[in-house]
Amino acid sequence: MIYRLINQMATNTETTLINRILNGETAAFSEVVDAYKNLVFSLALQMLKNQEEAEEVAQDTFVKVYSSLESFKGDSKFSTWIYRIAYNTCLDRLKKYKRKYLEEELNAVTENKIYTTKNALHEMEQKERSAKVKACLQYLPPEDAALLTLFYFEEKNLNELEEIFEQSVNTLKVRLHRARKKFALILENHIEPEVLRNYG
C-alpha cells in the first residue's frame, strides 16, 4: 500500500522542476519535453496512425501540460498526468475528424495459433521483430493501441493505467485481454504463411 502511494506521487525532482517552471523559469520546461516526448509521440502515433498528425498532437499535449501545470497537485505521478493529457488530446483529435481506421477482419484465436506465432516471432531477428510489431500496431483500433503502448512501453501497472484511462482495474484487465487477442491475430495475419508453417 505504502509502495503504491509513493509510486503514484510526483518525485521530489519532479516537484522541484515544476516549481522552477512555475516560478518563471520557462526554459526548464524543455527538460519535461525531452523526458516524455518519445512516449507521448509514440502514443499519439499509435492512436492517430499518422506521423505529422501525431507530431502536432504531441506538441499540443506539451503546450497543454505547460498551461495547466499549476493545476498539477502532485497526488499522482507526473508521467501519469502527462499521459492522461496526451491520451485525451488524441481522443479529442479522433472525435474532431471522426476518422475511421482500417480494421482487419479477425478470426477466432486458438492456443495453437498463438503458440505458432510466438515461436515464429521468437526466431525473428530483433530488428525484423521490432518492425513487425510496429507495423501491426497500426492495425489496432486507437484505444487498444494506446492501452498496449502504455502497458508495454512504459511498464505501467494497472493502477496507473486506471488514472490515465479513467476506468476500473477490472475493466482494464478485460480490455487488455481483448487487445492482446486482437494483436495476436494481426501478428499472425502479417507473418508470412511459410514462416508460420515452419514453427507450427
Binding site: 519535453v33 518519445n38 509521440f41 507530431e55 516471432l121 521490432s130 510489431v133 510496429k134 508495454y152 492482446r180
Partner: peptide, 25 residues
C-alpha cells in the same frame, strides 16, 4: 497471449519525433 506479447514488446523501441520537436514546443 501474455507470453506472445512479452516477446513482441521485449525489444520494441519507442518512436522518436523530429529532431527539432523540443524547440518547436
Amino acid at each position: 497471449l501474455r507470453e506472445l506479447l512479452d516477446i513482441a514488446f521485449h525489444d520494441a523501441q519507442l518512436d522518436a519525433p523530429s529532431a527539432d520537436f523540443t524547440d518547436v514546443v
